[in-house]
């Protein structure tokens, strides 16, 4: 599936909850519990994302010209947010990731997490994902 399709899928999935914040957060927590976990050996300080109140480790690898992300966090809601990002970006090419816009986060009602000062650092995560994509793109073309 392409990035835009997955984003639409997520929007529809979260729309079901309407104004029910509890349902929405329970779903987010559930997604967090199923996050594709980072391999223990990659859980190192250089994969730690700065700017988060909770700790987030993010790892990327290239398989078949597609980027595969794994991650972990010590906070479960943060894990849920990373899980959403990974669902959108894992299995896409570096170019697609570099070009993706992320307005869907607004549409699924998690906009409050988008503020640059928000403690769980969604913005830092997105930045890191794009950085990985740029780096992998460069290494691919060199």
């Amino acid at each position: 599936m392409r990035i835009a399709e997955i984003e639409n899928e997520l929007i529809e999935e979260f729309e079901l909850f309407g104004d029910d914040w509890e349902g929405k957060y329970e779903h987010l927590i559930d997604l967090g519990k199923h996050l594709p976990l980072i391999d223990k050996q990659h859980k190192t300080d250089d994969r730690l994302i700065k700017g988060c109140q909770s700790r987030v480790w993010l790892h990327s690898e290239l398989y078949d010209e597609k980027v595969v992300f794994t991650a972990d966090s010590d906070a479960i809601i943060t894990k849920g947010i990373v899980a959403i990002l990974i669902r959108v970006f894992s299995g896409q090419t570096p170019e697609e990731i570099m070009q993706a816009d992320l307005i869907f986060i607004d549409d699924i009602g998690l906009k409050e997490h988008l503020s640059p000062t928000r403690a769980n650092g969604l913005v830092s995560m997105i930045k890191q994902i794009k950085m990985y994509a740029i780096a992998l793109n460069l290494s691919q073309n060199s």
Binding site: W21, E22, Y25, Q53, S54, D74, A75, I76, I77, T78, A119, N120
Partner: peptide, 21 residues
Amino acid sequence: EVHPLDVGTILDKQGIAVRTG
């Protein structure tokens, strides 16, 4: 077993303002 940030987030949803971190 729960992270302060997660608790703060769920409290916020209930209109309760605390500090975490």
